[in-house]
């Protein structure tokens, strides 16, 4: 106790700073306490299961080629889904015409390569 009083007398600012941090620590502990009280067994098991499955997915998803490919794909999905600029309906003639478009040719090449690779992995 005496040691504590001496420490406070010698360096009151540091002790005040420490108490302030203790307040924050207590608030953090309250949030941890909230978590433990709110969760039940099933919620914990579900959460861990979901995180686990996400982890499994994240491993291949974090490959730099996958990220680059998915980034392009997702941006293309967003652009093609723009409600202000909806896609035209395309019949057989339209499809034939589209095949001559160099962008469509590139995308088709990607889809065919994807199908080939996927086919090998499905064996």
């Amino acid at each position: 106790m005496e040691e504590l009083q001496e420490a406070i007398a010698q360096n009151p600012e540091a002790v005040a700073g420490f108490i302030e941090r203790l307040d924050l620590t207590n608030q953090l502990l309250d949030v941890v306490s909230l978590g433990t009280r709110a969760m039940d067994d099933e919620m914990v098991v579900n959460l861990v299961g979901m995180v686990g499955r996400l982890g499994e997915l994240l491993e291949p998803a974090s490959h730099e080629n996958t990220i680059a490919g998915l980034d392009k794909l997702l941006n293309a999905v967003a652009e093609a889904s723009d409600p202000d600029n909806p896609p035209d309906k395309v019949g057989l003639m339209g499809l034939m015409k589209a095949v001559n478009d160099p962008d469509v040719q590139k995308a088709l090449g990607f889809v065919i390569k994807l199908a080939k690779t996927l086919g090998k992995k499905l064996d």
């Binding site: 608030q27 309250d30 306490s33």
Partner: peptide, 11 residues
């Protein structure tokens, strides 16, 4: 009842 805090508000 723990004291009210910003962290619980965020939670």
């Amino acid at each position: 009842i723990p004291p009210e805090s910003k962290l619980i508000h965020w939670a």
